[in-house]
Design a protein around this nucleic acid. Structure first.
Lengths: 152, 152
DNA sequence: TACATTTGTATCGCACACGATATAATCTTA
DNA sequence: TAAGATTATATCGTGTGCGATACAAATGTA
């Protein structure tokens, strides 16, 4: 029988494992990304640009659930490293368009091997592929629900 | 059979959603925690102290997967708010023991309603309880696997 | 018992996150 | 079309995370 405070135990909560898993995942990426001299959030921005070539700050923000208060400094750091270019739109002076430099474009090749290596870290005897797929499905739902709850 | 596409897909559908879910969860907690004038990581420390009364910095770190570089400043902020007390151990001058003040002890009552309120806001969502339990189970396994991979 | 090693915290610097606020450009509408 | 509202970025301040390093206390060992 659960007492009233059992809900306050760390292991009974959903949020702590999410927080831990997120940080541990970032740590797994770190050595691979360090070879490219980028961080995990910077890698996420590059994933978008490798796919879409050019995006506004807010378009990037919509996909990563981040806003300009986080993105502007991050993008300036990527620009300082000559990986991207930031340029005000001619048609709407408010928006800043972000695109890759040749150097940033070239990084795509090197980055291509990362996902396979990372997914290896998620492999373990305890988790089957089908379990991982189920997990990913619920996780996606959860993000969707949390996303709608957090901005209302 | 796993091709490059499925690996890429899984990476993007697993690592980024973990990162997003963690941040969104913290955002959901924020208004409840603001009423107690604490942050989410500070709340995690209090969860441990409400259960164990007194813990060393490294014991807290083992449970939260954090080290003194993160914990020391965080604990100092909690001490400044008169929620906890930090005291060097008599038997081993290296270790710092952390415990609750009466004020910090009292916060347990108020905090008890938080998990229930948050879980309640998920009523009627398209995730069943059994799906959530399965999810939680895989998540814990994942944290275990990632934890062992990240510190080697 | 000296001396090297390990352990537990602390400090430093950098890069996020994010609420709050500012600012300029664009859009709405009276 | 002038004035108010909205939109897109940027800035600021605070609080994490975390790798690297420092340092003193405790432990191990010759």
């Amino acid at each position: 029988m659960k007492n009233n405070f059992s809900v306050l135990y760390l292991e009974n909560q959903l949020c702590f494992p999410l927080y831990a898993a997120s940080r541990l995942t970032t740590k797994i990426y770190a050595p691979y990304l360090k070879a490219l001299d980028i961080t995990y959030p910077q890698y996420l921005v590059l994933l978008i640009l490798w796919q879409h070539q050019i995006q506004s700050v807010s378009e990037i923000g919509e996909q990563l659930l981040l806003e300009s208060n986080t993105l502007t400094p991050l993008l300036k750091r990527l620009e300082a490293k000559k990986i991207i270019v930031r340029k005000r739109s001619k048609t709407d002076e408010r928006t800043v368009m972000v695109s890759l430099t040749p150097s940033g474009e070239k990084m795509k090749e090197k980055a291509q091997t990362i996902p396979t290596q990372i997914m290896g870290s998620f492999q373990g005897e305890e988790i089957s592929e089908s379990e991982l797929l189920n997990f990913q499905k619920t996780l996606k739902k959860l993000v969707h629900i949390l996303g709608s709850k957090s901005n209302q």
